[in-house]
Design a binder for these strands. Structure first.
Lengths: 199, 199
DNA sequence: ACAAATACTAGAATTATGTTCTAATCGTGT
DNA sequence: ACACGATTAGAACATAATTCTAGTATTTGT
């Protein structure tokens, strides 16, 4: 087996194992020894690839965000109307959280203080995503279907309720999964960004 | 000085110092030695009062949530109409986050995996708050001013965008403070829960 | 094909730091 | 005044993260 794929297999094994441990007891209480054992990894390898425990947490975080962003765009970009687009964003978020609840809980709980470099990387990913979203939105704003708002407001308005509800569900404070209530959330998102005539 | 107030002074000193350190480098990277030093506290006292490092983090968290909840209710309960009430919730959240940004960042980043007992306590506080909110909402739903929705949906719909925007601002991803954009957020919140006739 | 450089693995040794433990001290109620 | 419980103190300890040195495989350049 080539070194490259052997190595990347090790890295994903570590990340996968780490997610399980982090989810169960939190980052602070999982010890790297357990990760080492469960991922069949030596101390040297782990520190070579990840630097330290936080490095594992960061890699997992960045990985997760990448996955999410890519899938989100794949769900949104094909939509041609404003209302189906908004709806697809909300529905996608709900389904993703419901489906990948462990990873979602990890990402949403941000149990981490990211390093300079990780922040940098995430900033860049965020910028790229924002740009793609922006490009999708512009025509609908120009055609008068969506309200004209400060750029930074669209994501919170559309996704805020969904993410907040997801947090509630993930922490056991509500019964129905996000997928179960996605129609309500999609409708609310639409109401808050569509162009309307009355107050 | 009586023991009681001497002790509670020590506890708040520790909590205050802890917030500063946690905010600067995160919980994982602050060492209790530094807190001890800055709060003029002995190892014995600290472990007597807080149990362990997580105990400090939890006390700070619970303290913050208590403060927030109490002030929120104080802002909401006097309002007599649905629209001013919704608006006061959003505006209050925005102002609180803008004003107490360090504490807000700590609460919103949930850099913690809470212990059983802390979860229990927060659950109870959450239940109490939800009940008060519910009591305020009921008349407005019954009078047909607000939409009839599953109980668990109101908070995410109203506060979700605000909290999400706050996270963005706190992590440096947007310029304008929540207070600066609170009118937009209040308007959107109103749109998403008010009873409307058209689609 | 060989050598040199590089990337990676290994695990023993070290260090850092969170936590425990024993003893002393201080209020408070009797 | 006495005794009891709550609190403080900090030295000693234990755990677990990380470093370090050495060794092994893989790729690259000649």
């Amino acid at each position: 087996m080539s070194r490259q794929i052997q190595t990347s297999a090790l890295k994903s094994r570590v990340i996968e194992v780490a997610l399980a441990h982090f989810s169960e007891v939190g980052i602070a209480r999982t010890n790297v020894g357990d990760i080492l054992k469960d991922a069949n990894c030596s101390v040297g390898s782990l520190y070579h690839h990840f630097g330290n425990k936080e490095g594992i947490a960061e890699a997992l975080f960045i990985d997760g965000v990448n996955q999410f962003n890519a899938s989100l765009l794949a769900a949104l970009l094909p939509r041609r109307t404003a209302s189906t687009g908004i709806s697809s964003i909300v529905t996608f978020c709900c389904d993703w959280v419901t489906d990948q609840s462990q990873l979602a809980a990890y990402l949403l709980s941000r149990e981490i203080k990211l390093s300079k470099s990780a922040k940098q990387e995430l900033r860049e990913m965020d910028r790229a995503l924002s740009q793609s979203l922006f490009d999708w939105f512009v025509p609908h704003v120009e055609s008068g279907t969506l309200q004209q708002l400060p750029t930074a407001m669209y994501v919170p308005l559309i996704c805020g309720p969904t993410l907040e509800y997801s947090r509630m569900w993930l922490s056991g404070r509500s019964r129905k999964s996000p997928s179960d209530v996605s129609p309500i959330l999609a409708q609310a998102a639409w109401q808050s960004v569509k162009k309307s005539n009355n107050s």
